[in-house]
Amino acid sequence: MSSVLHPVGPERRATYWRRRLVAVLLLVLLGVAAALGVRALLPEASSQQAVARLDPDRVSPTLGAGTPSAEAAAATASPSATAPTSSAPERVEPCTRDALEVALTSEATAYGPGVTPRFVLTVRNASETTCSAEIGSGMRSFAVLDASGEQVWSSADCQSSTSSQDYELEPGDSRSMRTTWSRQRSAAGCPDGQPVAEAGTYTVQGSWNDVAAEPLTVTLTG
């Protein structure tokens, strides 16, 4: 202890004290430098924490799959991987002939003088499956025959429209097509000046896409 407070040696006492003071100053400077180095590292760590708070799903390149940020990123990506894809609507197949019923009706069974006969052809889906059918003036035909079986009128002779459209028919659904008969006779090419049909009983025929309906009978009374 005495050698510390009272240095002994060939040098002057002041020399020993200066050396000790220099050593103490060096130790102090080293301590300050070490403290500054530790503080210099603190902002980077704080910056990384701030980034983590702003973007909790951001995965650092040094994070592993088991870290909270990696798990959050995996949860964020999972909904897009399982998102459902849209599919095209199912195509409805055309009706087969066996699936359809074709029926012919008349507004009356007897038509008096000056009354125009009106006929209706109906196509009905009799199957248990939805299907499509082309309905329109281009798909139906009507004809009137006299008592001898001679054709006196046909809707095809003077038909001005041949339009049609596809319709989806659910089981039991139907579509109807109508026509009127002017009570005049007709011929191919629709020539003018055809005579009026005489009073009597006539057979009416109707068909859709060459599928014939059950014929019916009407009477012209004058």
Results as ranks from 00 to 15, higher is better:
R178I: 06
A110Q: 15
G64Y: 04
V120H: 11
D173A: 12
Y16P: 00
W153N: 03
S78F: 14
Q165I: 07
P68Q: 01
G206N: 03
P56L: 06
L220T: 05
S141E: 14
L41W: 13
V51E: 09
A156G: 10
V115F: 06
S87F: 10
A65Q: 10
L54N: 04
A188L: 00
L29W: 15
V59M: 00
D98F: 09
C131Q: 07
G31L: 13
P215I: 03
A110K: 11
N209P: 00
E90A: 15
S154H: 06
R183D: 03
E11Y: 12
M1H: 14
T180K: 08
V92T: 15
P171Y: 07
W17P: 00
A213L: 04
D166F: 15
A126V: 11
L42D: 15
M139L: 07
S155F: 02
Q49I: 10
S164H: 07
S176V: 07
P94W: 02
E134A: 08
A133K: 07
S47R: 15
V144S: 03
A40N: 11
Q48F: 08
A81C: 03
P79S: 01
R124Q: 14
V102K: 03
V115N: 06
G189N: 01
W17R: 12
V152F: 02
E101N: 14
E44C: 00
A213H: 07
Y167L: 10
V32Q: 09
S141T: 13
A88W: 10
V38G: 12
E11S: 09
A70R: 04
R140G: 13
A52C: 03
F142D: 04
L27H: 08
E44F: 14
L169P: 04
I135T: 07
V120P: 02
Q159V: 01
T221F: 02
A133H: 09
A187S: 06
L42Y: 09
T76P: 00
E107L: 13
T82P: 01
A133R: 07
V51L: 12
Q194G: 02
S69M: 02
L145K: 09
G114H: 05
D57W: 10
S86D: 12
M177V: 13
Q165L: 10
D57G: 08
M1R: 13
P7Y: 06
W17S: 05
T221P: 00
